[in-house]
Amino acid sequence: MSGPTDLAGELHPDIEALLGMIAAGVESGARTPLPQLTPQAAREDFDASSPLLDLEADPLPFERAFDLPTRDGAVIAARLYAPRAPSTEGPLPVTLALHSGGFVVGSLDSHEWLWRNLAEGSGGAVLAIAYRLAPEHRFPTAFEDACDALAWIGREGPALGLDTGRVALCGDSAGGTLAAALAIAARDEAGLPKPVFQALAYPGLSSRQDTESFRRYGRGYLLEAETVAWFFAQYLRGEADRDDWRFAPLAAPDLAGVAPALIVLPEFDPLLDEGRAYAARLQEAGVAAEVRVYPGMVHEFLRMCSITEDALTAQQEISRALAQAFGKASA
């Protein structure tokens, strides 16, 4: 699989310019850091800034919005994207997509262009869900919503023309955390489809933020240590939740038998080391896991197509990996 592997040791110039603009905005008072906002204001800020980062992706031939039921009787919004109607030429493989945002922000709208690109690039459908956010819905609600969405694919997918034997998981940041944890749950729970692949972009995986990369890049590289602490204060019920593998997949005692993984990491990311550590744990457990480190990039770069071509390159790499996994599963 092609893609960058060597570290350049310097920020990409366009990323450096973006970080400078953000810092200047904070210093001038034009921009308020997320931890100083209410959760609702933070969501509005995140959604408003998202279109400025990504490039617009045209609607696909098949898109559908609907509500998806959860175990406690609530419903969550969902969108299905596909390069063709699932019923026209046989069942389509499907990727369950989980957005970033520290379990507090992020939405279907903030990631719509990314999910469209992955559907088109992978040749399969993408089911994106608006899992419930904290602090209104604390841990483990987001994880349970993800589980319920995967179970829904197993129940309802065939009637919609989705191939429940070719299901993948994909998420960025907190969404990557959920995807990794869901891969573990799917291995163990009889009622869940067994994913054939998991694509994780800069996921949070550790119980504690005490790595060298977190110390080195926890300030001034977009994802701030203070923001991470604020996210977790909104999401977790208490300190004991930190050691639950549904929040920190590195805490899982056994990773054998989970889906093969592609882990996409930016060089200048506080979460770099835990992503590498998780890949090592997977490999030690006999799971095929590939790490792709993008030099000069920062957290959330996957949705920065208007800033850097590396974002589109990473999206294409994930799409190819999904398509390859789907092809192997149908062989």
Rank of each mutant, 00 (worst) to 15 (best):
A78Y: 06
G20P: 10
L262H: 06
Y202V: 10
P69Y: 05
L118M: 09
C305Y: 03
A201F: 15
T308N: 11
E274T: 12
L222M: 14
I318T: 12
Y217G: 06
A42I: 04
I263E: 07
V105P: 06
I129D: 00
G29S: 08
P13Y: 12
Q283R: 15
M304T: 03
S173L: 03
L200P: 04
V287F: 12
R166V: 02
L182W: 05
D210I: 11
P86T: 00
G154C: 05
R246Q: 08
R31A: 14
L265Y: 02
F326E: 02
G73C: 05
E212H: 14
P203I: 07
G157E: 02
L55Y: 04
E317L: 07
G154S: 11
G257P: 13
A78H: 10
G204L: 11
T5E: 12
A65L: 13
F62A: 05
L200N: 04
A279L: 03
T5Y: 03
F232E: 14
P295E: 01
A77T: 02
L271G: 11
W245V: 02
V75H: 13
A229T: 07
R116F: 00
L282K: 08
I318G: 08
G121T: 05
V105T: 12
V94W: 05
E63R: 07
Q324K: 12
E44L: 13
S213E: 03
F66V: 06
G257W: 12
L80H: 11
M1W: 08
P260L: 11
S2H: 10
D310Y: 14
V264W: 06
F62Q: 02
G204E: 08
A23V: 09
G20I: 09
G121K: 01
L19C: 05
P135C: 01
Y131H: 11
Q315I: 15
D6V: 15
R276G: 09
Q198H: 13
A325C: 13
G73Y: 01
E300P: 03
A279V: 11
A77D: 13
S306N: 11
A180S: 14
S330R: 15
S207W: 06
D45S: 15
A181W: 00
A261K: 06
Y81K: 02
R276F: 01
L80T: 08
M297I: 05
S107C: 09
G121S: 08
P33I: 10
T164Y: 00
A128L: 03
T5D: 10
G327I: 01
A252N: 03
W152P: 04
P260H: 06
H111N: 12
V75G: 11
E284M: 14
G257N: 09
E63Q: 15
R166C: 04
A199R: 04
L272P: 01
P260N: 12
T211A: 12
E44P: 00
A134V: 13
L182Q: 10
F139E: 05
A261Y: 08
Q316I: 08
P35H: 15
L192S: 01
P4Q: 01
S306L: 03
G123Y: 02
T32I: 15
T308I: 15
I76G: 01
S110A: 15
